[in-house]
Nucleic acid binder design. Structure first.
Lengths: 349, 349
DNA sequence: AATCATTTTGTTAGCGCTCACAATGGTGTC
DNA sequence: GACACCATTGTGAGCGCTAACAAAATGATT
């Protein structure tokens, strides 16, 4: 188990396969310098002469030396690891946010450790945070868009910076979010422009930050236009809930346009309307939210609000790096959404 | 930056906030034993008397002691970390496999580090493996279902166990996979049973293991039934490619049933048929593969082959633990898929 | 040439833990 | 009561690295 070969470097002079991995000391010996000088080279310290640096770098390459992270962490008290606490990772949004975080983190020389929450409650959150602290992560990115999460985080002070995705941040937690209200406004404005005046909303769960924000944006945009905001139905983000609500709406026919909280619920809604003989967009217009890759292939192709989740993730890491390196723990970043018009919206009959 | 408060334990006797974290030695002192005895307690060594163990555990609780992972790793040469190398994480399958891996790993006391591949090529793969080796992970789970990945892995011997998802494994790499051929057979058998005899296939990219396996399963099932396997079209897994192929098929109308390599391409196909006035299932039956949560809300609801990706991920960790603890590096696990019949299939007209 | 400031290099200690081994105590056996 | 035997506990070293300081080499200034 000890002394693994590790011949990933295509090192032609690879012979003593079951010797232990080279250490700083081995490199130093080979380059004819002290171990500390080698340490300076790998840490890019300024005060190393060019000649020495080159000799050391050559020795490092020849031996295929790689720094031992555990030893480094032990003395620096930094793990070069960011913990990502996530739920709903199988969903388009969170998954892509994670991708953005991972990319930015790896580019910045950090490792990314994840903990997925199956059920979101205080205990699970505390458990995951403890897990990360055991690993002594340098920071935690939270992709758990429940309002509850934020309050849970607020009452903790794990001693490392926290960046929460989808929140505005507080005095202890930085936040990065897509401007959900703006997105909802875009959607509603588009419908109003086309001449709709009865515009309903199928919202996401109201214990989700995004669910609330989109509903508020919808309501605000309507009121500003002097229209009624009384047709609000709440789903659970799933296509199934969109379908159930769609069946109801197909019977009632109280609105000529529906703004739906995400694309999956829109899919369910579209099918319910299709089954009931309600034509989209001739009878009812539908706008979604997210712009998943599939949304352009719904029947009909869905007008929706695009969010750049990867960008959001990358920006989170910007905040995180600022927090780790400069101690800025209270910044906020807002990413702008964009309306994508397809064929599920048209002027009312 | 040093000496963080870490008051996650709701430790009422929390006072000396900016003191450094308690060490083994501190616990030992408090419990009146040697540091080694404390080490024995936290590692569950058998030869510790009950009385001593209790005293030590009390001291641990009082001080809120948590073991320092870096120090432990330094001496054990184990990081308690599994690296997950993944691509296409925003897709349903890989994302859920990751979830399964994460759950099983955390349950087994491991940390999960991820590296996502944006583009799949040798360099990117080697890069990610190096990244993991820098972190000295104890094992690597590979969720990159390209044939190329396997050959890249085969020519490496990073010195840690590797489990590849979606492959049968080799002499150096363990594998865990869903029985794709069986899944294809289930789909084709269902169509044959309903009386179809001209059954086409929209395949995934042929440099993907799953793409090839499903196409082979389709072909084999048809030939065993004495039917022609000449209608094969290749997409790229996306809804867009399914749509393009669907438009062609809608014109040609050479088959009464189509087995599609995944649900997303099925979505595109369904829309193309819908646009062209080809009715599903009256004119053409369609079977998908994956059973994503949305598939039951397509128009019409999609008959498809369900794969339990989370289970697959969990089983991967079983293999990994076997490899780490017992050195079994060549096992294979196969998970069985299941046909889910919905309304996109019916007897031909 | 002597002095100082500055750059470059080396030396020592210790981060917190586990391992190997040594030492202690209690029990049973003859 | 002397011995072996086992269970339990303690001691010392060292994993590989970086931080702090000490020393040496270099250059600039008088």
């Amino acid at each position: 188990m000890f002394a693994s070969p590790l011949c990933i470097e295509h090192n032609s002079s690879m012979a003593k396969s079951n010797a232990r991995l080279p250490r700083l000391e081995d490199v130093a010996e080979r380059a004819g310098v002290s171990h500390q000088t080698v340490s300076r080279v790998i840490n890019n310290h300024p005060n190393v002469s060019k000649r020495t640096r080159e000799r050391v770098e050559a020795a490092i390459a020849e031996l295929g030396y790689r720094r031992n992270t555990a030893a480094r962490s032990l003395v620096t008290r930094r793990s070069q690891t960011i913990g990502v606490l996530a739920s709903e990772l199988s969903q388009y949004g969170p998954a892509n946010t994670l991708l953005g975080v991972e990319q930015a983190a790896r580019d910045a020389g950090y490792f990314v450790s994840i903990a997925a929450l199956r059920t979101v409650n205080r205990d699970a959150i505390f458990d995951a945070i403890r897990h990360f602290l055991d690993q002594s992560v340098d920071g935690i990115v939270v992709i758990v868009p429940h309002a509850e999460t934020l309050s849970a985080l607020a009452e903790q002070s794990p001693g490392v910076p926290i960046v929460a995705v989808g929140s505005l941040g507080s005095d202890t937690v930085s936040g990065a979010m897509v401007d959900q209200k703006r997105g909802a406004e875009l959607a509603v404005a588009h419908l109003i422009e086309q001449g709709h005046s009865r515009i309903g909303h199928v919202a996401g769960p109201q214990d989700w930050i995004d669910g609330v924000a989109r509903a508020e944006g919808w309501s605000m945009a309507l009121r500003e236009a002097g229209l009624a905001d009384d047709l609000l139905l709440v789903g659970d983000w799933s296509a199934g809930s969109g379908y159930d609500i769609g069946r109801k709406l197909a019977v009632e026919r109280t609105a000529t346009a529906i703004f739906v909280g995400n694309d999956q619920m829109s899919l369910g809604l579209l099918r319910a309307f299709n089954e009931a003989g309600v034509r989209v967009p001739e009878d009812v217009s539908v706008v979604g939210f997210d712009d998943q890759p599939e949304s352009g292939y719904f029947i009909p192709p869905l007008t929706t609000v695009r969010q750049d989740f990867e960008e959001l993730g990358r920006r989170c890491m910007d905040l995180m790096l600022g927090a780790i390196e400069n101690g800025d723990t209270t910044s906020t970043i807002v990413v702008e959404p964009e309306l994508v018009v397809r064929r599920s919206t048209a002027a009312p009959a």
